[in-house]
């Protein structure tokens, strides 16, 4: 089973300003079952938009998303059970992802009952089991979300997603809203769950150092495009795209990348996705840009069989 994302674009038209936001500009990715794909990029590069498309909350403007050949996400629109439980989403902010008027036990029980995943008399046992899997004590099931800490809420949100027995879990910055002290715990929990339930993950973050702990592959996104893609070890040890290098440079323990000075590269303004620059979207901030970069949008090309880069300059 494979997740296949092919040439996906997403445009939002904003009527009040008469503009069109190009949130995704042709994204193609594949994720094998049981693997974790990390997606990194600055704020606004379209990570959450891609997440919403994968779980079917929105439909792509162009392109297709398939899970082992079957189109993804139609289920949410059509109310078909067979589709929607396969992909689940964990949101960034656990303070808004749980219904404030539902106890956490009722919240998980509702998933099991609605989809009849257990016999009526087994529901309670299953709720307790799921809570214990994510490290929440059984006696907390009658609590409301506001009586829980951020970390506990995120664990509940994860348990609720697991209740639907998904194959693919999209984690949209699952720890960035949490207190630094609990981030590692939740990350470790996610790693455990993946192995325990043989899940496929898409792990989204704007922070490379978070992604590398969990990912098999990494996709670096910039303004709605993938600019570099490959196994995490290869991307991190020999990054090719100037944007990836700048991102790695911004991780505290990586101060220089092979002698090239990428300092301040990320300090410039990200171009407006409603008014994309001609050519490579990164050319205005790029330290190695040549005039041709402002002419043609670079394609993602193979460097090695499992390392792709969208920069003709580094492929030369």
């Amino acid at each position: 089973m494979t997740l296949t994302i092919r040439d996906v674009t997403k445009k939002y038209s904003i009527k009040s300003r008469k503009t069109v936001v190009n949130a995704l500009n042709g994204v193609s990715l594949t994720v094998e079952k049981g693997k974790t794909l990390g997606i990194v990029g600055e704020s606004g590069c379209g990570k959450s938009t891609l997440a919403r498309l994968i779980v079917g909350l929105e439909q792509p403007t162009e392109g297709s998303l398939n899970w082992s050949g079957a189109p993804l996400g139609q289920g949410v629109r059509n109310g078909l059970r067979s589709h929607h439980t396969k992909t689940q989403l964990v949101f960034q902010d656990p303070y808004s992802s749980l219904n404030p008027r539902q106890t956490i036990g009722a919240c998980i029980a509702e998933v099991i009952k609605t989809h009849k995943l257990r016999a009526e008399d087994q529901v309670n046992a299953r709720v307790i089991e799921l809570l214990s899997v994510v490290g929440i004590a059984e006696d907390m099931q009658n609590r409301f979300p506001h009586q829980l800490s951020g970390g506990q809420r995120q664990r509940v949100a994860i348990a609720r997603a697991l209740a639907a027995e998904p194959d693919l879990l999209v984690l949209d910055e699952p720890v960035s809203a949490l207190d630094v002290s609990v981030r590692a715990d939740v990350m470790n929990l996610l790693v455990d769950l993946k192995n325990q339930f043989n899940l496929t993950y898409i792990f989204i973050s704007h922070d490379l150092s978070m992604v590398r702990h969990i990912s098999d592959d990494i996709a670096v996104m910039y303004l709605g495009r993938v600019v570099e893609y490959g196994s995490w070890s290869e991307v991190l040890s020999s990054p090719k795209h100037p944007y990836t290098k700048a991102l790695i440079q911004s991780i505290p323990e990586h101060t220089t990348v092979r002698g090239i000075d990428f300092e301040n590269v990320l300090e410039g303004e990200v171009p407006d996705p409603a008014n994309l620059p001609k050519g490579c979207a990164f050319n205005q901030r790029c330290p190695i840009a040549v005039p041709a970069c402002a002419e043609k949008v670079p394609e993602l090309l193979e460097l090695t069989s499992h390392h792709l880069v969208a920069c003709p300059e580094v492929l030369k």
Binding site: R52, V55, G56, L57, G75, V76, G79, L80, R81, H83, H84, T85, T87, Q88, L89, F91, D93, S96, S97, L98, N99, P100, Q102, E110, V111, T114, H115, A157, R160, A164
Partner: peptide, 22 residues
Amino acid sequence: EMDYVKSVRVLGFSTPRILIRH
């Protein structure tokens, strides 16, 4: 627009259920 309503849409709950319960 709250994430908890988006969550239950992803969980595949019916529209009447989402309206009445969430």
